[in-house]
């Protein structure tokens, strides 16, 4: 069953269609990749799902319920969490409090102070940051800030996690760790929709891949199908 569906999702910036009439779906417990050249509209599509911007026209449904027109905090509480392409951690707050905020406000049910503390500790352990509880988020390295963003998003107890370029700027070892992290998030039963430029990573972890180009969906399929698709090769390498 599809946990997330989009119909005719479109978003214009001025006269330019950043996303144009895209239909998509993400099934329960899937890892779906979203790729495309720079400026293809990938992050814009994510923004419409997380309600940062409203598609116009277009409809997005989450678990069968229409979420277009909702506010970001409402979408978050319904169970869609996200990370950001350019990291947006709360620099002057300790790592622990970054995560705690998510469990205080982003979950569907209220959480007591003790529960949220326990939850935050477990999540920091899960992403491998438990030694840095009290460090200010701004003092972390880029890779750790990205891990923190994942932990923070998970703290909202999502059913669907949108990951925007988790691996950009990471070295090979870190990419391998990040891939492992993504699969272990899915093993927790969380569906993943991810934007990624690191081909090795996306081919390795995704069940299915969508390709955007100039805001239009030009291909979709298993990593194998996408990698051998003539259109995709043309878009990436030129004709």
């Amino acid at each position: 069953m599809s946990i997330l569906e989009g119909e005719g999702v479109t978003k214009y910036f001025g006269g330019l269609a950043a996303v144009s009439d895209v239909d998509f779906h993400v099934d329960q417990s899937e890892i779906v990749g979203l790729i495309g050249p720079n400026g293809a509209g990938k992050t814009t599509l994510f923004n419409t799902i997380s309600a940062a911007i409203a598609p116009r026209p277009g409809v997005i449904r989450f678990k069968g319920k229409r979420i277009t027109g909702l506010k970001p905090y409402q979408v978050c509480r319904m169970g869609i969490a996200r990370t950001f392409q350019s990291v947006k951690v709360f620099n002057n707050m300790p790592v622990f409090e970054n995560v705690r905020l998510g469990s205080f406000f982003g979950t569907a049910t209220r959480m007591s102070s003790a529960e949220s503390a326990k939850e935050a500790e477990e999540l920091l352990d899960f992403v491998g940051l438990s030694a840095m509880n009290t460090t200010l988020a701004g003092d972390l390295t880029l890779v750790n800030q990205k891990r923190l963003e994942v932990a923070r998003a998970l703290a909202t107890k999502p059913e669907l996690l949108l990951i925007d370029e988790l691996m950009a700027g990471l070295n090979n070892t870190e990419v391998a760790q990040a891939m492992k992290l993504v699969t272990s998030i899915r093993d927790k039963g969380i569906t993943i929709f991810m934007i990624e430029h690191v081909m090795k990573a996306i081919m390795g972890v995704c069940d299915r891949i969508m390709v955007l180009h100039h805001g239009v969906k030009i291909a979709e399929g298993t990593p194998q199908q996408v990698a051998t698709s003539q259109t995709v090769v043309e878009v990436y390498l030129g004709e």
């Binding site: 506010k71 970001p72 978050c76 205080f104 406000f105």
Partner: peptide, 22 residues
């Protein structure tokens, strides 16, 4: 926790909103 949320707004309003803060 509202004090924490207010600080998160000061740090990055967009991130705060996407973490469930109204």
């Amino acid at each position: 926790k509202y004090g924490l949320a207010l600080r998160s707004i000061g740090e990055n309003e967009e991130a705060a909103a996407h973490l469930g803060v109204n």
